[in-house]
Amino acid sequence: MFLLSQPLTDSIEFEGECYQLDLAFDNVLLVFELLEDDLNIFVQVENALKMLIGEDFDFYENMEKYISLYQAVMENIIVKNSNTNVKRDLAGNPMPEPESKKFYSLTEDAEYIYASFLYDYNIDLFDVQGKLHWDKFNALLISLSEDSKFKQVISIRQRKPDKSMTSEQKRELKEAQEVYALEKNQEELEFEAMDWAGKQEYARRHLAAEGGEVYG
């Protein structure tokens, strides 16, 4: 939870140890980009955790511990604390309601986010890399004005044609939605939103259907 009465979180207590975290917004976004890469899920978790705690360790020496630490950081620090009002997935995006679509991606919409921060707050996100805390970034992101490019793009993606619209307006809306459509389909976006356990179960189901096996 984002509370002005409390300092920003920059560490986590886990199994009696305190781990300092690099929660600069750009580092967290790099983690999300890593999680989108077509890598073995264990490699993803290992590299993501090393980026977050800034330490080198033998992941496979105590894999169960480090997987649990990764989950604790993502679920209790990055995702849970990123927004007090909006539930977020492990890719940092708003958690969709059942049967609803996801309307933005922190990675695909990076240009719109950059332009919107500059427009609304006069903040050049490149100038605050390594400085702006992830929680602050999220508080500013969800508060962007409706005049910002980012919010305008989301509005276009969400808009549905109605009876009051002319044929020309419907055509223009369809064209705009095609221009601003996210590249990834809903299945890909939903997979990215899964936590480690969810991805493992997804992989097991698909490999089982193909006669393969997943370990871990």
Rank of each mutant, 00 (worst) to 15 (best):
Q152T: 05
Y180D: 01
E175H: 05
S116R: 01
R159I: 06
E33F: 09
L29C: 09
K50W: 03
S82A: 15
V28C: 12
F42W: 10
V86S: 12
G212N: 10
F14Y: 01
L90Y: 05
Y119C: 09
H206C: 07
G211A: 05
C18M: 14
K65W: 06
L125Q: 02
S116W: 02
L69T: 00
M1Y: 09
V43R: 15
D120V: 00
D135S: 12
V43F: 15
D22C: 08
G211Q: 05
Y60M: 04
D58L: 06
F137Y: 02
E13I: 05
Y112F: 15
S11P: 04
F103R: 03
D56A: 11
G211T: 00
V43I: 15
K184N: 07
E55F: 04
D22Q: 04
V86Y: 12
L35M: 15
L21F: 02
D195H: 05
Y202P: 07
Y70K: 02
D56P: 06
K102S: 14
V73D: 07
S167L: 10
L189F: 02
K184S: 08
R159A: 11
I41W: 06
E178F: 05
E55M: 11
T84I: 10
E13S: 11
M74N: 04
S155E: 13
E146T: 10
S116Q: 04
P96A: 11
P161I: 07
Q44E: 15
L30E: 15
E190C: 07
A110Q: 15
L35P: 10
Q20A: 12
K151N: 08
Q158C: 07
V214P: 10
E61L: 11
A139T: 07
L90H: 08
D38M: 14
L3N: 14
